[in-house]
Design a protein around this nucleic acid. Structure first.
Lengths: 227, 227
DNA sequence: GAGTGGTCTAGACCACCTC
DNA sequence: AGGTGGTCTAGACCACTCT
């Protein structure tokens, strides 16, 4: 191994070995470049990666420190549901349970930054994995992003239509646990009150809100990632 | 704005505008460098960031494509519990409920890559926020990583001792929803069967397993992040 | 074999921040 | 005011992988 990855490994090793304990200032880029016999840019690359991982804290003039109370950063992959199901070699299908124009509930209007009571498209979709209920998707969609006539979401999943036609957007995502409502339970085929893993996402373009979606995952769902 | 961030923004804009639709091959680095009047390294930096975000897919010789079915990547911060509580201006405290040497349950031994029935330290800690139950932490700890004599975890939280003395490690993390067990309910002061948000982590150093920890969060907990 | 991205270098300038 | 990291350049070599 050589190059910036080798330097990252060596620095990490010195941190683990407590040569550079938590909170300590480490030598500056030029000194390390000399020590390792590489260009400063190579050291910069290695240290920047460690800073991104939360292991180091870097500030101009102040130098580079080992993070005292490291905030571990985990990267989650949020796949399209169909891709997630098919990655487990299961067959994916979806059924459109509801589709209606509805005024946006006030709480959601606030989260999306939309006018209260705005006319939104309400969609409820049940995703199936190998024919069994997998995820109940409840979505409010800004009709302004839709073409006229609107696509038939009975055949093409909404989410896939969005990623293909609206493109990349910003937003936020939240995870929680909720007891299954009567509606959740009916759709997912579980008992009311069962512990469900809930994902909630809001997405925006630069100019307008796009959608709010709540995913209620069938019992047993796990979201997993490497640290 | 100028530099690599400007180029990233312009490329992203062309993708959103569908000048470069999903799946399309975009010009190579040298062509873009000429067009924007910058060095190839600057284009490389911009495109690498977009690839890291999952917007582009890059392969030598094959070139750079707009991701067809983008896998959104969300970065989660996993703070030390005390820091998380204090960040909300609440007072943190913890009580050590149990501490015992116990053989590692077979299921956990497999996950940690430890010999079945290995002698581990079992610790159960209740974290309080403003005096109210916040998280029930259930942990198995490899005694080999502890000094002799072992620290008194009644005063210093285990997790903080670990981050300060064992240092950075690899591992994995999983999130799920579970009904509260009788034990969970008693500790957290909620009803048995209530929907709890569960975090499970396993961590290793290069050479040995360190710990498995299960965090049962009190009802209402949300894990949130930006996309 | 050849085209593409990944990385490295040596030097430079600059933004930022602590002192 | 001056030290530090952040970025850019122009050029080079290399690793990978598609054809």
């Amino acid at each position: 191994m050589s190059g910036w990855e080798a330097i990252r490994a060596e620095v990490l090793s010195r941190i683990r070995r407590r040569d550079w304990p938590p909170g300590a200032l480490i030598p500056n880029e030029e000194a390390l470049a000399q020590e390792f016999g590489v260009a400063r840019a190579t050291v910069n690359r290695a240290l920047s990666e460690l800073a991104r991982a939360g292991v180091l804290e870097r500030r101009r003039k102040a130098g580079t420190r080992v993070t005292a109370l490291p905030v571990r950063k985990a990267t989650l992959d949020i796949p399209v549901i169909r891709a997630e199901v098919e990655a487990r070699s299961q067959r994916h299908a979806h059924r459109l349970l509801a589709r209606a124009r509805q005024p946006l509930p006030p709480a959601l209007a606030a989260r999306l930054g939309a006018p209260a009571g705005a006319d939104y498209l309400f969609l409820q979709t049940l995703h199936l994995a190998d024919g069994r209920p997998h995820v109940l998707e409840t979505r409010w969609l800004n009709p302004a992003v839709l073409p006229d006539p609107a696509p038939d979401f009975a055949t093409l999943s909404i989410n896939e239509w969005l990623v293909a036609h609206v493109g990349f957007a910003t937003g936020d995502i939240a995870f929680s646990a909720e007891p299954a409502s009567v509606e959740d339970a009916a759709a997912l085929g579980c008992a009311a009150g069962a512990a469900l893993f809930i994902t909630e996402r809001t997405t925006f373009t630069d100019v307008a809100p796009i959608t709010f979606v709540r995913l209620a995952h069938a019992p047993g769902y796990r979201l997993q990632t490497l640290l």
